[in-house]
Design a protein around this nucleic acid. Sequence first.
DNA 1: GTAGGGTTAG
Length: 673
Amino acid sequence: MRHAAVAVLRAAYAAGDLSKGKALHARVIRAAHFDVVLHNNLISFYAKCGRVRLARKVFDAMPFRNAVSVNLLMSAYASSGRHKESFALLRVVDFGLNEYVLSAAVSATAHVRSYDMGRQCHSYAVKAGLAEQPYVCNAVLNMYCQCAHMEDAVKIFENVSSFDAFAFNSMINGFLDHGQLDGSVRIVRSMTREVEKWDPVSYVAVLGHCASLKDFVLGAQVHAQALKRRLELNLFVGSALVDMYGKSNRAHDANCAFEVLPEKNVVSWTAVMTAYTQNELYEDALQLFLDMEMEGVQPNEFTYAVALNSCAGLAALRNGNAFGASAMKTGLWAHLLVGNALMNMYSKSGSIDDADRVFMSMPLCDVVSWNLMITGYAHHGLAREAMEAFHSMLSAAEVPSYVTFVGVLSSCAQLGLVDEGFYYLNVMMKELGIIPGKEHYTCMVGLLCRAGRLDEAEQFIVNNCICTDVVAWRSLLNSCQVYRNYGLGHRVAEQILQLKPNDIGTYVLLSNMYAKANRWDGVVKVRKQMRERGVRKEPGVSWIQVGIDVHVFTSEDKVHPQMEQITKKLDELIDKIKAIGYVPNFAVVLHDIEDEQKEEHLMYHSEKLALAFGLIHTPKGATIRIMKNLRICDDCHVAIKLISVVTGRKIVVRDAVRFHCIDGGVCTCDDYW
DNA sequence: GTAGGGTTAG
């Protein structure tokens, strides 16, 4: 009976015929005597067919079971991701665990990241004398890696003499997952020496290590080794290669690794999209999304997140909206990852209200969501709202992170809350043990500058060893410009130009500073210096989306087909704002041109062209959103504020650093930028 | 009739 039945089950599985198996099941139930092995075969059959509930039914109906029955059901649960249920099965076991069941139990605790349960299993293994069993030992080692207790993992790793690739793989991934790159460097080194036979997972792990370190040289060597064994065709290894090249800023190589894959799945597609996005090739990433859908591959939550991040990079609000709607239809919208990506997209596209709306509707949120809200408000010049969000975050018992404090400190800076800023820096360091980074120090410099305490700001830079940080110095120089402190400004600019010769941002700030202080001799000097050193301004580019099209404008570029209309509109606008006090600010013109040309030059700044175009092509009262690659210039800032008055429009300009939300002649940047 | 680690986000 048993042999025949097993043969039937095997055939039924091979033919994918579930009903044949069920028919046999019925006969087994009617049979006079109970056979454990046969019932185990039934469990195995249902499990292989992906019918875990039926497997469980068989299990529950058994008058007695053995270790194999338990193990079969546990692995069925594990392969469908139901690790808690797998672990819970131990409660019905009324006999001692063997090495099979024990390693399944340990791996369940590893998946749910339960250090406590994992440790209990480990001590059980020690008492039962099973701790040295290779599978148990590896499972325990892996459990400690997953549960972020690398010190326990290291103890096991060091005490066992002979290891296969498995243990090395676990150790590398454990160190990588917890950001301990020095640890993974050690393991990878000894692995290249001691482990002869790498398995495919080893390649994936080592490539992940290379990706984290952006170690393209080692990555390419691993690639070469993989080629010898034709492993570049393996979906996992291939995706890891795509990721490694992408993170090493080699989008083209990433694409080659992708193209070579004979079978592509949603992960490999998403990996190559990610590679493009991380290298700022947003349009290509979005094109890949379309290609993927054409191939009939369904996007998952990661794919949507990457697509939305590309939209964020382009500030492509409409496309982002479309992806959001599409994610809503597929039900993937509720994923944390997608919600966060949507918030990010709205925030980077200048639509902070929409970001807030998404945040409020998210079923689950995490520290990243809170950070997006806080930094989003801060970038939009809404420091009060940012601080409110921060306090709500604390009330919600979410633990602030490194990024949280970047938002908090920059909000304190915007509000001129010097004491609060230092208080929060202290909380961050003392209470949360977060080591402040450049971003925090730069915020503190900005904080002191905002309060007009420029000398203290300079001292702060010197005292905190961030003298080599151009961003910190630039923040100080910016304040010198705002406060017209050209003595300090000149010194600071020298300092920056020593660190980064020909830094165009510095020349612009310096020139603006002299202009604001009415020091025309200074402006002339800066221009001369630039000419002598051959420094050229990067062309300003602005873009605006109208309908489904993105219209791009470069300064002085007159190639747009509707240039005539745009010029006419601009003339009109300039006349109107001159009537309410606009005076062109020639100081921002860094080119050596005649005075009479300067007004025309200013008029053709890319943001003004984009704005005029937007005013022509959008309905009355609609908000206009403009993106710019550089920082908005002082003249345009003044002009756009006045244009918002004469047209009654809300105008949002995203420049290289922040948002300017301009409404009724007032900008959220408070003219401090 | 039984086993483990892996790729995509920030």
